[in-house]
Design a protein around this nucleic acid. Structure first.
Length: 478
RNA sequence: CGAGGCGUGGCUCAGUUUGGUAGAGCACCUGCUUUGGGAGCAGGGGGCCGCAAGUUCGAAUCUUGUCGCCUCGACCA
């Protein structure tokens, strides 16, 4: 018996976090490897997560005036070349189409790694007057980046995302939108995914190719590593100048508009897994879980059992995403499988319960079991789902807060990064050279200069000892 | 792209040293009995041993080439 269980159980987190991750991804049936290297197949359970992310995030976008569009997936080389930093940033991982049918193309085309250039080309045609501004467009699509090493959800050669691209009359408006969308992301992660993040600005080394400023939300995985979970960029008027986007202003003079872009990808599913998961598998926050409650009938062939189950599902749990598992597996098997899949709540209903007018409700996040009267399920379950959602956030927040350290001495800084999983707050002079040295010494990178809690903790750079300019959060990243 | 490791039914692997016509557990299918933490019994199906060339009477096993995957680094959402 014990042996049998061993075969199917996932590697424990503490033993090997990376393997635990791939085990969960596979066993929860989120993805399947495809015969295309570095590209994944999203199975129903995995795709449903993305659909829910899309649905909830898209609604938040629309609340801020975002409109969805769709642009081509091919970018002619000439168009890509227009912004120097941008091309240099993406050239190493571009995939090219060089032939159409049997004929070689006059100009090869890149499969979009991101669509700044196409949006600029579009805005050049759409924007002529200050009255044409702002434009606040977003596209849901997939992009391709020819990555050398890939990991499910975290890094694949093709991935799904959304990319928002906006044009504004003034620099202030662009900055405002950049910050606004970062906040949309942070709130979305907090309220729907129960993932706390740190908001901040990227250093020049880490910022987006072609941006004047990149803002980020950084999340911490269970193993203390960082995952950049969403970014928002302010482009200033650099792209507009490179692409010749001009409008006639209120002053009857020609101006370049100011632009932003912001994106969030399926990598977020990786964050969900690594923030909330445990040794029994996936743990999904109720808001995003495709199935929120699963009902397990006990002795389901006994008359009346399945009837009560359907009644609970249809009447007591109307409006909740609920499933009855009436497959002919043993209850124990179902329990284990559903835990692997991360369903937030399980309700067990058997003859014994029916006789007592009760059922057993089990939380996925804490494994806590409680007996609930059948006629109270209707009010009890929605409340419990909210409790789980909140508890999951609080647990993740506690983990984040308790895994952030401070250092004012370089030896101590290196020691913490070497010995403790998590982030380190330390001062920085502003020179990329110090970032490079720190990376070489510790493999950690600057995650961001946080918006909150940025008060200096020393006046010297942690690395070179010269006058410090910024407080930086450092950490090892995915 | 550098350094290591690995390719044998769906999965985890044994068999490779010493060539002799492919095996286990789990999963799957059928039937009966079961059902409150991965059920039991009986029967059954499934493998060009990653691919290609070579050596040989004979290759999962030896040789060469090739493709792919995993882990760790460098690069990146």
């Amino acid at each position: 018996m014990a042996d049998k269980k061993m075969v199917e159980q996932v590697t424990s987190m503490d033993e090997d976090f990376a393997r635990w991750y791939t085990d969960v991804v596979k066993k929860a049936e989120l993805i399947e490897y495809s015969s295309v290297k570095g590209c994944l197949i999203f199975l129903p359970a995995g795709y449903a997560l993305w659909e829910n992310i899309q649905k909830l995030l898209d609604a938040r976008f629309k609340d801020t005036g975002v409109e969805n569009v769709y642009l081509p997936m091919f970018i002619p080389e000439g168009l890509l070349q227009k912004e120097k930093d941008h091309v240099e940033g993406f050239a190493p991982e571009a995939a090219w189409v060089t032939e159409g049918g049997h004929e070689k193309l006059e100009e090869r085309m890149c499969v979009r790694p991101t669509s700044e250039t196409l949006f600029c080309d579009l805005y050049k045609n759409l924007v002529h007057s200050y009255r044409d501004l702002p434009r606040v467009y977003n596209q849901w699509c997939s992009v391709v980046r020819w990555e050398k090493t890939t990991r499910p959800f975290l890094r694949s050669r093709e991935f799904l995302w959304q990319e928002g691209h906006t044009v504004h009359e003034t620099a202030e408006e662009a900055e405002e939108r950049t910050v606004q969308m970062l906040n949309v992301y942070a709130d979305f992660l907090k309220e729907e995914l129960a993932i706390p993040t740190i908001k901040g600005r990227k250093t020049d080394k880490e910022k987006f190719a072609g941006a004047i400023a990149t803002y980020t939300i950084e999340a911490m995985m269970h193993d203390g590593k960082a995952l950049q979970s969403g970014t928002s960029h302010n482009f200033g008027d650099g792209f507009a100048k490179a692409f010749g986007i001009e409008y006639t202003g209120r002053d009857n003079k020609q101006h370049n508009p100011h632009q932003t872009s912001w994106g969030l990808s399926t990598r977020l599913i990786g964050a969900l897994i690594m923030v909330h998961g445990d040794d029994d598998g996936l743990v999904l926050p109720p808001h995003i879980a495709p199935t929120q409650v699963v009902i397990v009938p006990i002795q389901q062939r006994k008359e009346g059992v399945l009837d009560v189950c359907s009644r609970v599902a249809e009447e007591s749990l109307a409006g909740i995403r609920v499933k009855i598992d009436d497959s002919d597996r043993s209850p124990g098997f179902k329990f284990a499988e559903q835990e692997m899949r991360g369903f937030p709540l399980r309700i067990e209903i058997g003859p014994r319960d029916i006789e007592n007018g009760e059922c057993v409700v089990v939380r996925r996040d804490t494994h806590e079991k409680q007996t609930v009267k059948l006629d109270e399920v209707k009010s009890f379950v929605p409340k419990l789902l909210e409790t789980i959602q909140n508890d999951m956030y609080e647990r993740a927040k506690k983990h984040l807060d308790s895994s952030i350290y401070e250092a004012t001495d370089y030896e101590e800084f290196k020691k913490i990064l070497d010995e403790k999983p998590g982030f380190v707050r330390a001062m920085w002079c502003g020179e990329q050279e110090c970032e490079d040295i720190i990376k070489a010494d510790t493999t950690a990178t600057s995650r961001c200069m946080p918006f909150e809690g940025s008060e200096p903790i020393s006046d010297k750079c942690i690395c070179c000892g010269k006058p410090a300019k910024h407080l930086v959060i450092w950490g090892k990243a995915y």
